[in-house]
Write a protein that binds this DNA or RNA. Structure first.
Length: 143
DNA sequence: GACGGAAGCC
DNA sequence: GGCTTCCGTC
């Protein structure tokens, strides 16, 4: 819901914070099935998966897949695709490049970065870009 | 590993 | 449309 900027922060993440919509399944109105980018945020949210996938401290929105096989296994389990692997999962992540949801951090292995300002546009097309960005989205990569 | 075309699935 | 599967190329 635009206007509701309930935020969640990471004490150990150097002040990382995200708008609440980023955690809600209903933030993808178009499709009923779970979206990969949403699943990734879901894992990043939980401390129990920090050995598998984690935010890269310093760079806002950047994350590292520490255990690609495990992330693929979890994603495959969620989508009932037992044959899922990192090769296939990473192809799905690469489709996000053109959609400007994600981009690759070049040179850093298994490292990607969210374009949060794009995600808000994807989820809320009515959002007027002429209005000033919410405070905690400022400083995100916009390109 | 990372990229992106191509075909297929639902 | 959003992946999944497969694969040639760098």
């Amino acid at each position: 819901v635009p206007g509701q900027w309930a935020l969640r922060s990471w004490p150990q993440g150097g002040g990382l914070a995200f708008p609440d919509w980023a955690y809600k399944a209903e933030s993808s109105p178009g499709s009923r099935q779970i979206q990969l980018w949403h699943f990734i945020l879901e894992l990043l949210q939980k401390e129990e998966f920090r050995h598998v996938i984690a935010w890269q401290q310093g760079e806002y929105g950047e994350f590292v897949i520490k255990d690609p096989d495990e992330v693929a296994r979890l994603w495959g389990r969620r989508k009932s695709k037992p044959q899922m692997n990192y090769d296939k999962l990473s192809r799905a992540l690469r489709y996000y490049y053109n959609k400007r949801i994600l981009h690759k951090t070049k040179g850093k292995r298994f490292t990607y970065k969210f374009n949060f300002s794009k995600l808000i546009f994807v989820n809320y097309p009515m959002w007027d870009v002429r209005y000033p960005s919410p405070p905690l989205l400022m400083g995100c990569s916009v390109d």
